[in-house]
Nucleic acid binder design. Structure first.
Length: 196
DNA sequence: CGAACGATTAGCT
DNA sequence: GCTAATCGTTCGA
């Protein structure tokens, strides 16, 4: 039985937590799967929502680690982040893609398709498939409806630049499960691989 | 108060 | 590969 991640497990800096989350299982009301893609963001990072300090939108990022930061993207999608580091810092990990494992029929219904590869391949798609709502903003990740189960196997992790940002576009803070078909996009051929 | 801009996605060429 | 859709947040006047 995998270990349930608790707030202390999110106390590391954003890139370290983002890498450690690859292979972990994320469930929301028992629906979800294996995390195969994440991105790290930090206060000292021009691409981060937290870069200019606390605002009404990003306040959860400055709260205690081990909680959710949920924001609306492009006025359309709900995206899920895990707050990390320490309270007041403003660091987080964006959940960009998961491999569907539990509650697949429910996720297909929510997404209106049956292609497993596209079910949760992107932060907006993850939000829709797991029914992420703004009410979850600031919610603890070790309490209902969330469950985050530690990765129990070692695997290779790909590292590359983050997607969809204009500032700090060269910072390699995107992490992926090497070879996974459930990524939101392929990593550049030049992307480094960390053997874990 | 106005305006630009997204941590995106679906659909079409 | 390219673009429209869509609207809350943020920042400058």
């Amino acid at each position: 039985m995998p270990r349930l991640l608790r707030p202390a497990d999110f106390a590391g800096d954003a890139p370290a937590v983002a890498q450690a989350l690859i292979g972990a299982v994320l469930l929301v009301d028992g629906v979800g799967g294996r995390i195969v893609e994440t991105e790290a963001y930090d206060r000292e990072d021009p691409a981060s929502h937290s870069h200019s300090g606390p605002t009404p939108r990003n306040r959860a990022m400055f709260g205690p680690p081990g909680r959710a930061y949920v924001y609306r993207s492009y006025g359309i999608h709900w995206c899920l982040n895990f707050v990390c580091r320490e309270e007041g810092h403003g660091a987080g990990v964006l959940i960009r893609a998961i491999e569907p494992v539990a509650g697949i029929p429910v996720m297909c219904e929510r997404r209106g398709l049956h292609d497993l590869r596209l079910l949760c391949a992107g932060p907006g798609r993850v939000g829709q498939a797991l029914a992420i709502v703004h009410d979850y903003n600031g919610h603890r990740l070790d309490l209902k409806p969330f469950e985050v189960l530690a990765s129990d196997r070692h695997h290779d992790v790909v590292v590359g630049p983050r997607i969809g940002i204009s500032k700090a576009a060269d910072v390699p803070w995107r992490f992926g499960l090497a070879g996974s078909p459930f990524l939101s996009r392929r990593f550049p051929a030049s992307a480094a691989i960390i053997r874990a």
